[in-house]
Nucleic acid binder design. Structure first.
Lengths: 317, 317
DNA sequence: GTGAAAGCGCTAACAT
DNA sequence: ATGTTAGCGCTTTCAC
């Protein structure tokens, strides 16, 4: 074809706003530049931030992202992906961190690539799983060690039911820290009574309810480690309710370091997770295909000390 | 077909995890149960919450939602939708609230249905636009009247560049309130110097920078109306930085009433927007098709008084 | 009422 | 190198 002709064709394409139909291409070749992004809830700022990063990266490479809120429900997740599989979607970035992903086994057998965001790989995982994670256990340990260093002896962990891997690991990390301290520090774990009342959308409410209960006890903890920043914000709100000052009366540490963490009062001490790095890495993985990809990558965590933690109050010593 | 046979077929479908290919259906009939959701940034909790609600509603009716972060850039939005049009997407829920949506005119001429979320309809709008909005002007007026009632005489509005409709309307509402008050109250409007530094992702930082500047002035405002809650949170952070107490030294009111608003310190006085109602309505509209739909719907706003506003301090009187 | 056939817009494989 | 053809999995139409 003559260069001139090509140019004319391209100009007409532009004028008509023509773009090749992804649908047809998809149907024919099965390829499909669509990524399913499943997160517990985008209403949770951590996942909102992650989704934003994933979408940005995806757009750069002309990928589309389908948003799915799983509410961490394996069944719902499975139904979602069954449909998406039928629609030709072959790549999913999965943020639900469930203990097992066997509910997607058959799809993975057939070729579904799953990139687990924020979930450490498990020995029993299907080989099609690529895991992008942080060392949750170590992160939690860093948080609790920080509290221990400040002299706290009665530390509470507030968490939704420990039914995800990352939560279990963070709990382990807490235990590691107090065990290694050699002190007689005490760890109390608070989980909501009835499961299902709090989803990721309501993480702050959960933190609030947890702290409410914990701080009302006769021997109340002097420090709280909340499973994530959103939850920590709720815990601070509860402290305020009962007239306790953070950090003077109770210290609070979070996890994630969402942008909000620096803006709230008091600015949150937290363990930073490099959300953007993980998100862009995830998208790069789907682009490059599974063959050249590592099956697992771990990202660094950093303790960010801000103003929500302080020495244990003398009155409680 | 015999009922028994039908049952057998359906059972096999279930066993094989078979679902009809949306792709093929789409290609053939052009229909396609896919909604494009374009928001400025899902990292902003308001849009995160909205996206969550839209997705929930969409899933109930077996629609997929494609997430697009426009960063309020008309060009980017256009490129996005051009591609999506080619892919067979015919419905978009548009959260960018730009003053004009002429950049999508040709697509709307060809049949793109756009449901504008949080953007009042304009006389010049294309007939294909359905507008879901609140009375921003009235909402802002409610906020400022509340401040006036508390005795504030020097009130600041913190806003990103007034280049969207809703912002312009909120500004109007502020003016209405002070004009109607008959007092000699003063309204000062703060916008960032250089455009482009702050997107919706950074709304809190914007509020922080604005309040920082405002509160450093010799005759500082005693009350701040932030264009939205996320921005208000930033403004509170700035007040803290300079040692001012909210609401004792400065009152702050937000807009939206995102779930976070009740959890921060101090809990935010704000104007509630019924996010879920709007989101579900939007999805219902795409389901029912444009023929039976209203071209416009307005949702109610409520002033929620919490703890970030108080009487003007005597010292400033 | 049930079944057959055409064709949506592409791409891969083949023939020229 | 360029042109032609078959067919992805559905829906719609048309014939029975």
């Amino acid at each position: 074809m003559r260069a001139e002709t090509l140019a004319r064709v391209e100009s007409v394409m532009r004028d008509l706003g023509f773009a090749p139909s992804r649908t047809a291409r998809q149907l024919r070749s099965g390829a499909g530049k669509t990524i399913a992004l499943v997160v517990p809830s985008v209403a949770n700022p951590f996942w909102g931030t992650a989704a934003h990063e994933v979408e940005s990266a995806a757009m750069r490479y002309d990928y589309q992202v389908l948003l799915c809120n799983s509410e961490r429900d394996a069944d719902r997740e499975r139904r979602y992906l069954l449909q998406l599989w039928a629609d030709g979607v072959r790549d999913v970035i999965l943020g639900s961190s469930l203990r097992s992903i066997d509910h997607l086994k058959d799809l993975m057998d057939r070729g579904l690539r799953v990139i687990a965001f924020d979930r450490e790989i498990q020995p029993s995982d299907h080989p099609a799983v690529i895991s992008l994670s942080v060392d949750n256990r170590r992160g939690a340990r860093m948080a609790v060690e920080h509290l221990l260093r400040l002299g706290h002896q009665r530390i509470a962990l507030i968490s939704p039911p420990i039914k995800t891997l990352s939560r279990a690991q963070r709990l382990e990390g807490c235990r590691d820290a107090v065990a290694a301290s050699g002190s007689n520090a005490e760890l109390v774990v608070w989980e909501p009574k009835a499961d299902g009342r709090f989803g990721d959308t309501e993480a702050a409410e959960l933190g609030q309810e947890g702290a409410r209960a914990l701080l009302a006890a006769k021997r109340r903890p002097t420090a709280i480690f909340a499973i994530n920043d959103f939850c920590a914000i709720g815990a601070c709100a509860a402290a305020r309710e009962v007239g306790l000052k953070v950090p003077d009366d109770v210290s609070v540490v979070g996890f994630d370091d969402i942008p909000l963490a620096a803006m709230v009062d008091p600015p949150l001490t937290t363990v930073r997770q490099p959300i953007r790095a993980i998100a862009t890495f995830a998208v790069d993985l789907v682009r490059s295909g599974p063959d050249s990809a590592p099956s697992r990558a771990e990202f660094p965590l950093t303790l960010v000390e801000r103003a929500s933690t302080a020495r244990q109050p003398a009155s409680a010593a």
